[in-house]
């Protein structure tokens, strides 16, 4: 237990802030990427792609 505590990394406020900033940017970029492929699929194949037997 004591060993584990020794190996833990404590981040500074600046590091935490930078990580949060990067996480938000990465999340937004992924969301944009998903939307692009969703809309592009509709554009390329037409709305009929949603109308199929499940």
């Amino acid at each position: 237990m004591k060993q584990e505590e020794l190996e833990r990394v404590t981040m500074t406020e600046a590091q935490k802030k930078a990580r949060r900033n990067r996480s938000i940017a990465l999340g937004l970029a992924l969301a944009v990427f998903v939307v692009i492929f969703y809309v592009a699929t509709l554009v390329k194949f037409g709305p009929a792609i949603l109308n199929r037997p499940l």
């Binding site: 990394v9 981040m11 600046a14 590091q15 930078a18 990580r19 900033n21 990067r22 938000i24 940017a25 990465l26």
Partner: peptide, 10 residues
């Protein structure tokens, strides 16, 4: 160590 790079740096 742990990066302090922001999205603006990328």
């Amino acid at each position: 160590g742990i990066s302090e790079a922001t999205a603006a740096d990328f």
